[in-house]
Structure formats: C-alpha cells, structure tokens
C-alpha cells in the first residue's frame, strides 16, 4: 500500500518540498472522503483542516441574498484549499462545497502550525507553498475581473 508520505509527494503544490519535510508533514495527514454536495466549510466557521484534493472538485461559493449560492471559483485535483487556517483568526472566508465526490488528504491545521513553529525551515517551506497558491488564486481572480472573453478589446 502506498504510504501517506508517498501520496503527499505526488501532490503538484508540494513538489518543491524535500522528502524530510514531506515525511514531517505526513504526521498531520489523513485520507478523507466527501460525497457530492457536502459543505467542507461554511463562511465564518473555524478552519481546522487544510485539504489537498486528490479526486473531484470543490466549489468556492458565496451566498448572495435573494440569489442563492454563487460559485466564484472551483478547485480540483492537485490543488490546496482551506489556507485560511494559516491566517488569523483562522476563519473560513467563503463556503467550500464538493461539486463531485471528493477524495482529499486532510492536514490538521493545529498539528501543522506546531510543526511550523518547531521547525522554522519547514515553516518557511510551508509559507512559500501557501504564498504560491494564494498568488495563483489572486492572479486568476484579478484577470477574471477583466472579463476577458466578454470584451475582447
């Protein structure tokens, strides 16, 4: 059977982490499954887990009064969600809902935070990884605001 460290090392967003850091991280990780339509997180909830998606997609949505839930973004296999766990006060900013059956690796946020504090090298590698994820999301959101395909000019 494939070990948790091996599973983690296959995740694209962790490809810069060295084997020792992956092994260290594996101590906080577990496999998890969400059937389609499950709310992994609701806006305002405390974020206790960070998820690395292996199969299926998760929608990032906000509830618009009078219009219902609106999906703003989707995250798929190989991507990381729940990064608000690293911020203060560690609250979900939006709803995360599984759009399909989802298999993910969950990383316990408290366990990760302890490891980051005890090993600054690991902590820095985690910071770089999360900044990378945020940078991609932010860039994509900003470009979406341009409505590129609506107005081709």
């Amino acid at each position: 059977m494939i070990s948790m460290a091996e599973l983690l090392s296959q995740q694209p967003c962790l490809k810069e982490l060295d084997p020792a850091s992956i092994e260290f991280m594996a101590g906080c990780a577990a496999n998890t499954f969400f059937p389609q339509g499950t709310a992994l997180l609701r806006e305002g909830q405390r974020v206790e887990k960070v998820y690395l998606l292996r199969h299926g997609r998760v929608g990032i949505q906000v509830h618009v009064p009078g219009k219902g839930p609106k999906i703003l973004d989707s995250v798929g296999p190989g991507e990381l969600i729940g990064w608000s766990a690293f911020g203060r006060p560690g609250m979900a900013r939006m709803d995360l809902v599984s759009l399909e059956d989802v298999r993910a690796i969950s990383l316990d946020a408290e366990c990760l935070a302890r490891k980051c504090e005890s090993d600054p090298k690991f902590g820095y590698a985690m910071l770089v990884m999360v900044v990378d994820v945020l940078q991609n999301r932010l860039q994509s959101t900003i470009l979406q605001l341009l409505d590129l395909y609506g107005d081709r000019s």
Binding site: P12, I60, I71, D73, S74, G78, S140, L148, Y149
Partner: peptide
C-alpha cells in the same frame, strides 16, 4: 473546460485557464 460565470448546471471548472495548468 472552465468558465468565469457558471450557472447551476455547470459541472466543469470555474476560473481562468491558467489555474488548470499546474494540475
């Protein structure tokens, strides 16, 4: 496939094409 503004029947991705490249 990915779109910027999905409707409720959309079962593909949401967001810019660049998001799908790393995966």
């Amino acid at each position: 496939l990915t779109v910027d503004h999905p409707d409720t029947d959309w079962h593909h991705n949401v967001g810019l094409v660049t998001r799908l490249i790393p995966t």
